[in-house]
Simulated assay, not measured.
Amino acid sequence: MWYWLFKYVLLGPILYVLGRPTIEGAEHLPTDGPAILASNHQAVVDSFYLPMRSPRRITFLAKSEYFTGAGLKGRFQKWFFSALGQVPIDRTGADAAGDALKAGLQVLADGKLLGIYPEGTRSPDGRLYKGKTGMARMALQAGVPVIPVAMIGTDKLNPIGSRLPRPGKIVIRVGPPLDFSRFNGMGGNRFVERAVTDEVMYTLMKLSGQEYVDVYAATLRNKVPAEPAPRPDAARIPDVEAS
C-alpha cells in the first residue's frame, strides 16, 4: 500500500514537478513475469524516477545501511526505503555477493521485476563504468531477460553531494529485452558471465550516450578519474573476476 501511496500521492507529484520525466521505449517493459531491469546509475533519485514511470512495481537491492540507522532518522529511513520496495543487503559480510544473489533470485522467483545497477555504485563523473557480473549470474540462473534502461539527466537534478534537488529534465530510455537463453545451463561460468555483462554494458552505453570506462567505478573513490578505454565488445572476453 505504501509503495503506491508514495508513487501516486506523496512522492510522485513532487518528483514529476522537479524532473518532468518522460519515458521512451515503455513498450519493452513486460506486463507480467520476472525480468531484470539493468540501469546505469548516476544519482540516488534513479531509484525513484524509474519506478515512478514503470507500470509495475520494481524491487531494488539496497545497502543495509539504509535500514539500520539509529534514532528517529534511522527509523524513518528504514520505513521510507521499505515502502519504496527496496530489499536490504549486507555488503560487508563474508558472503555479501552470495546473499545478494539469493535475495535477487528470490525476487525473480516471485515473478517480480528486479532493478539492478551493474556498475555497483553511482558514477563519480557521469561516465559509464565496467559492470559487475552478479547481474549476469542472476539472469542466467533464473533464466530471465535483461532489459537495459538508461537514466538521463538525474545527475544534473541530484548531483553527488547535493542536499537539495535542482529542477531539470529527466529522460528514461528503455531498450528491447536482451535474451541470453543461448547460454542456458552455463550459469556459474565466469567467462560467460563476463560476456553477458559486457553485452549489457555496451547496450547501456548506446542507450545513454555516456562515455565508457573499462574500470570499476568503486575503484575511483577519492582518486583521479581513469583514462577512458575502448568501447566494450560483447564478443570479447576480458579479464574475469567474481562480482
Rank of each mutant, 00 (worst) to 15 (best):
Y8C: 09
L11V: 15
P21G: 12
T22G: 15
I23L: 15
G25W: 12
G25L: 11
H28F: 15
P30E: 08
T31V: 10
T31Q: 15
G33T: 14
P34Y: 04
A35Y: 00
I36H: 00
L37Q: 00
L37G: 02
N40D: 01
H41Q: 10
H41V: 07
V45R: 11
Y49R: 12
R56M: 08
I58R: 01
T59E: 10
F60L: 00
F60H: 10
K63A: 05
E65N: 03
T68D: 09
T68Y: 00
K78Y: 00
F80D: 01
F81K: 02
Q86A: 13
I89K: 08
G93C: 10
G93I: 05
D95P: 10
G98N: 10
G98H: 11
D99C: 01
D99H: 12
D99K: 14
L101K: 12
L101M: 12
A103M: 07
G104I: 01
L105H: 01
L108W: 08
A109I: 03
G115Q: 11
I116R: 12
Y117I: 11
E119S: 09
G120L: 08
R127C: 03
L128S: 06
Y129Q: 09
K130M: 09
R137M: 05
L140Q: 11
V144G: 09
V146C: 04
I147N: 06
M151E: 04
I152L: 13
G153D: 04
D155V: 05
L157M: 15
S162H: 15
R166A: 05
G168L: 05
I172N: 01
S181Q: 13
F183N: 12
F191E: 14
F191D: 15
D198N: 11
V200L: 11
M205V: 11
Q210P: 02
Y212K: 10
V215A: 10
A217R: 02
A217F: 01
T219F: 05
L220V: 04
R221M: 09
N222Q: 04
N222R: 09
A226V: 14
P228D: 04
A234L: 08
A235E: 12
A235W: 04
A235F: 06
P238H: 02
P238V: 08
A242L: 14
